[in-house]
Design a binder for these strands. Structure first.
Length: 226
DNA sequence: ACATTAAGTGATT
DNA sequence: AATCACTTAATGT
Protein backbone atom coordinates (compact mmCIF):
# COMPACT_ATOMS: atom_id res chain seq x y z
CA UNK A 1 0.00 0.00 0.00
CA UNK A 2 2.63 2.45 1.07
CA UNK A 3 4.87 1.40 -1.81
CA UNK A 4 2.24 1.87 -4.47
CA UNK A 5 1.41 5.28 -3.11
CA UNK A 6 4.99 6.42 -3.23
CA UNK A 7 5.45 5.00 -6.72
CA UNK A 8 2.41 6.92 -7.90
CA UNK A 9 3.75 10.07 -6.33
CA UNK A 10 7.15 9.50 -7.92
CA UNK A 11 5.66 8.96 -11.38
CA UNK A 12 3.45 11.96 -11.08
CA UNK A 13 6.35 14.14 -10.17
CA UNK A 14 8.33 12.83 -13.15
CA UNK A 15 5.53 13.91 -15.46
CA UNK A 16 5.11 17.15 -13.57
CA UNK A 17 8.73 18.10 -13.98
CA UNK A 18 8.21 18.81 -17.65
CA UNK A 19 5.06 20.80 -16.91
CA UNK A 20 6.84 22.81 -14.24
CA UNK A 21 9.75 23.55 -16.52
CA UNK A 22 7.37 24.44 -19.30
CA UNK A 23 5.53 26.84 -17.02
CA UNK A 24 8.67 28.56 -15.78
CA UNK A 25 10.91 28.44 -18.83
CA UNK A 26 8.64 27.55 -21.76
CA UNK A 27 9.01 31.05 -23.17
CA UNK A 28 12.78 31.00 -23.22
CA UNK A 29 13.85 27.42 -23.83
CA UNK A 30 13.25 25.07 -26.77
CA UNK A 31 10.71 22.29 -26.18
CA UNK A 32 13.30 19.56 -26.87
CA UNK A 33 15.55 21.03 -24.21
CA UNK A 34 12.71 21.19 -21.71
CA UNK A 35 11.99 17.51 -22.32
CA UNK A 36 15.63 16.59 -21.95
CA UNK A 37 15.91 18.58 -18.74
CA UNK A 38 12.83 16.96 -17.29
CA UNK A 39 14.35 13.54 -17.90
CA UNK A 40 17.64 14.40 -16.19
CA UNK A 41 16.46 16.55 -13.36
CA UNK A 42 16.13 15.38 -9.80
CA UNK A 43 13.53 17.14 -7.71
CA UNK A 44 14.56 18.71 -4.46
CA UNK A 45 12.09 20.13 -2.00
CA UNK A 46 13.31 22.35 0.79
CA UNK A 47 11.86 23.66 4.00
CA UNK A 48 12.18 27.26 5.16
CA UNK A 49 15.72 28.13 6.25
CA UNK A 50 17.08 24.85 4.92
CA UNK A 51 20.66 25.29 3.80
CA UNK A 52 21.03 24.09 0.23
CA UNK A 53 24.69 24.86 -0.32
CA UNK A 54 27.39 25.34 2.33
CA UNK A 55 30.60 27.25 1.80
CA UNK A 56 33.17 24.72 0.67
CA UNK A 57 30.69 22.30 -0.89
CA UNK A 58 31.73 20.67 -4.14
CA UNK A 59 28.71 21.01 -6.37
CA UNK A 60 27.78 18.48 -9.00
CA UNK A 61 24.21 19.51 -9.57
CA UNK A 62 23.00 22.94 -10.59
CA UNK A 63 19.69 24.02 -9.13
CA UNK A 64 16.94 25.70 -11.08
CA UNK A 65 14.34 27.29 -8.86
CA UNK A 66 10.83 26.26 -9.82
CA UNK A 67 8.95 27.50 -6.80
CA UNK A 68 9.98 29.56 -3.82
CA UNK A 69 13.08 31.65 -3.34
CA UNK A 70 16.68 31.18 -2.32
CA UNK A 71 18.97 33.54 -0.51
CA UNK A 72 22.64 33.59 -1.45
CA UNK A 73 25.14 34.83 1.11
CA UNK A 74 28.83 35.15 1.67
CA UNK A 75 30.19 33.63 4.83
CA UNK A 76 33.55 34.06 6.52
CA UNK A 77 35.44 31.58 8.67
CA UNK A 78 33.70 32.85 11.82
CA UNK A 79 30.31 32.08 10.36
CA UNK A 80 29.51 35.77 9.88
CA UNK A 81 27.33 36.37 6.86
CA UNK A 82 26.36 38.94 4.30
CA UNK A 83 23.39 38.59 2.01
CA UNK A 84 24.34 38.98 -1.64
CA UNK A 85 21.20 38.35 -3.68
CA UNK A 86 18.13 36.22 -4.12
CA UNK A 87 17.20 33.59 -6.69
CA UNK A 88 13.54 33.32 -7.60
CA UNK A 89 11.35 31.06 -9.71
CA UNK A 90 12.72 30.36 -13.18
CA UNK A 91 16.19 31.52 -12.19
CA UNK A 92 19.37 29.60 -11.68
CA UNK A 93 22.71 30.47 -10.19
CA UNK A 94 24.86 30.63 -13.28
CA UNK A 95 27.90 31.15 -11.10
CA UNK A 96 27.60 27.66 -9.69
CA UNK A 97 28.00 26.37 -13.23
CA UNK A 98 31.53 27.70 -13.38
CA UNK A 99 32.03 26.38 -9.88
CA UNK A 100 31.08 22.91 -11.10
CA UNK A 101 33.04 22.76 -14.32
CA UNK A 102 36.20 24.16 -12.76
CA UNK A 103 35.75 21.80 -9.81
CA UNK A 104 35.95 24.62 -7.32
CA UNK A 105 34.45 24.63 -3.86
CA UNK A 106 31.41 26.77 -3.38
CA UNK A 107 32.26 30.30 -2.30
CA UNK A 108 28.74 31.00 -1.12
CA UNK A 109 25.98 29.69 1.05
CA UNK A 110 22.47 29.18 -0.29
CA UNK A 111 19.45 29.06 2.00
CA UNK A 112 15.79 28.52 1.18
CA UNK A 113 13.69 31.48 2.29
CA UNK A 114 10.44 29.53 2.11
CA UNK A 115 9.42 26.00 1.20
CA UNK A 116 10.89 25.73 -2.27
CA UNK A 117 11.06 23.36 -5.18
CA UNK A 118 14.27 22.94 -7.12
CA UNK A 119 15.22 20.92 -10.16
CA UNK A 120 18.77 19.71 -9.90
CA UNK A 121 20.61 19.25 -13.18
CA UNK A 122 23.97 17.46 -13.51
CA UNK A 123 26.54 20.08 -14.42
CA UNK A 124 28.07 18.17 -17.35
CA UNK A 125 24.89 18.52 -19.40
CA UNK A 126 24.80 22.24 -18.91
CA UNK A 127 28.16 22.51 -20.64
CA UNK A 128 27.08 20.61 -23.74
CA UNK A 129 23.78 22.47 -23.90
CA UNK A 130 25.73 25.69 -24.22
CA UNK A 131 26.77 24.61 -27.71
CA UNK A 132 23.69 22.62 -28.53
CA UNK A 133 20.92 25.06 -27.69
CA UNK A 134 21.01 28.74 -28.45
CA UNK A 135 18.19 29.36 -26.00
CA UNK A 136 20.23 27.78 -23.22
CA UNK A 137 23.19 30.06 -23.93
CA UNK A 138 20.94 33.07 -23.80
CA UNK A 139 19.30 31.86 -20.62
CA UNK A 140 22.60 31.29 -18.82
CA UNK A 141 24.11 34.56 -19.98
CA UNK A 142 21.03 36.48 -19.01
CA UNK A 143 21.10 34.80 -15.61
CA UNK A 144 24.71 35.80 -15.18
CA UNK A 145 23.75 39.33 -16.03
CA UNK A 146 20.89 39.39 -13.54
CA UNK A 147 23.05 38.07 -10.72
CA UNK A 148 25.74 40.62 -11.59
CA UNK A 149 23.25 43.48 -11.50
CA UNK A 150 21.93 42.32 -8.17
CA UNK A 151 25.45 42.03 -6.85
CA UNK A 152 26.14 45.61 -7.89
CA UNK A 153 22.97 46.75 -6.19
CA UNK A 154 24.14 45.08 -3.00
CA UNK A 155 27.55 46.69 -3.23
CA UNK A 156 25.91 50.08 -3.77
CA UNK A 157 23.78 49.54 -0.70
CA UNK A 158 26.77 48.61 1.44
CA UNK A 159 29.00 51.37 0.14
CA UNK A 160 26.62 54.27 -0.24
CA UNK A 161 23.65 53.72 2.02
CA UNK A 162 23.38 54.22 5.75
CA UNK A 163 22.44 51.17 7.73
CA UNK A 164 18.95 52.51 8.40
CA UNK A 165 18.27 52.95 4.68
CA UNK A 166 19.76 49.56 3.98
CA UNK A 167 17.57 48.00 6.63
CA UNK A 168 14.41 49.47 5.13
CA UNK A 169 15.46 48.31 1.68
CA UNK A 170 16.11 44.86 3.10
CA UNK A 171 12.64 44.69 4.64
CA UNK A 172 11.01 45.85 1.41
CA UNK A 173 12.99 43.35 -0.66
CA UNK A 174 11.93 40.56 1.65
CA UNK A 175 8.30 41.65 1.50
CA UNK A 176 8.34 41.82 -2.28
CA UNK A 177 10.00 38.46 -2.61
CA UNK A 178 7.78 36.58 -0.20
CA UNK A 179 4.67 38.49 -1.20
CA UNK A 180 3.83 39.53 2.34
CA UNK A 181 4.26 42.66 4.41
CA UNK A 182 4.85 40.44 7.43
CA UNK A 183 8.48 39.47 7.79
CA UNK A 184 8.88 36.51 10.10
CA UNK A 185 12.41 37.09 11.29
CA UNK A 186 14.04 37.82 14.61
CA UNK A 187 16.17 40.93 14.88
CA UNK A 188 19.15 38.60 15.11
CA UNK A 189 18.35 37.02 11.75
CA UNK A 190 18.06 40.45 10.14
CA UNK A 191 21.35 41.47 11.71
CA UNK A 192 23.00 38.33 10.33
CA UNK A 193 21.81 39.02 6.79
CA UNK A 194 23.06 42.60 6.94
CA UNK A 195 26.21 41.64 8.82
CA UNK A 196 25.38 43.93 11.68
CA UNK A 197 24.66 43.30 15.34
CA UNK A 198 21.33 42.55 16.95
CA UNK A 199 21.41 45.58 19.25
CA UNK A 200 21.98 47.97 16.38
CA UNK A 201 19.20 46.45 14.30
CA UNK A 202 16.79 46.54 17.25
CA UNK A 203 17.46 50.24 17.73
CA UNK A 204 17.06 51.08 14.05
CA UNK A 205 13.86 49.03 13.86
CA UNK A 206 12.55 50.96 16.86
CA UNK A 207 13.25 54.21 15.02
CA UNK A 208 11.41 52.93 11.95
CA UNK A 209 8.48 52.03 14.18
CA UNK A 210 8.44 55.51 15.71
CA UNK A 211 8.49 56.98 12.19
CA UNK A 212 5.45 54.85 11.45
CA UNK A 213 7.11 52.76 8.72
CA UNK A 214 6.70 49.44 10.52
CA UNK A 215 5.20 47.75 13.55
CA UNK A 216 7.18 45.35 15.70
CA UNK A 217 6.24 42.05 17.28
CA UNK A 218 8.16 39.10 18.61
CA UNK A 219 9.61 37.21 15.64
CA UNK A 220 7.72 39.46 13.28
CA UNK A 221 8.19 42.80 11.56
CA UNK A 222 5.23 44.26 9.70
CA UNK A 223 5.79 46.83 6.97
CA UNK A 224 3.11 49.46 6.50
CA UNK A 225 3.84 49.81 2.80
CA UNK A 226 6.25 48.39 0.27
C1' DA B 1 6.23 28.27 38.13
C1' DC B 2 10.45 28.14 35.89
C1' DA B 3 13.66 28.21 31.98
C1' DT B 4 14.69 29.90 27.59
C1' DT B 5 14.80 33.03 23.92
C1' DA B 6 13.76 37.63 21.93
C1' DA B 7 13.84 42.40 22.39
C1' DG B 8 14.88 46.90 24.82
C1' DT B 9 18.24 50.18 27.07
C1' DG B 10 22.19 52.89 29.10
C1' DA B 11 26.91 53.43 29.08
C1' DT B 12 31.30 53.15 26.73
C1' DT B 13 34.42 53.15 22.81
C1' DA C 1 27.86 51.69 14.60
C1' DA C 2 29.57 48.11 17.66
C1' DT C 3 29.96 45.97 22.14
C1' DC C 4 28.99 45.06 26.97
C1' DA C 5 26.17 44.29 30.59
C1' DC C 6 21.93 44.20 32.13
C1' DT C 7 16.59 44.44 32.17
C1' DT C 8 12.12 43.33 30.54
C1' DA C 9 8.86 40.78 27.72
C1' DA C 10 7.13 36.77 25.41
C1' DT C 11 6.89 31.95 24.93
C1' DG C 12 7.62 27.01 25.76
C1' DT C 13 7.65 23.01 29.14
Amino acid sequence: MRTSLSITKQMLSQVDKEAMLQAQLGYVLEPELITEMAQLAKIRETTTDEIIVHVGDRLQLIPIVIEGSIKVSRENENGEELLLYYIEGGDTCAMSLQCCTKKMDSQIKATAMEPSLLLMIPAEYMETWMNQYKSWRTYIISNYHSRMMELMESIDAIAFMNLDQRLLKYLRDQAKLLGSLEILHTHQQVADDLHSSRVVISRLLKQLEIKGEITLHRNKIILKTI
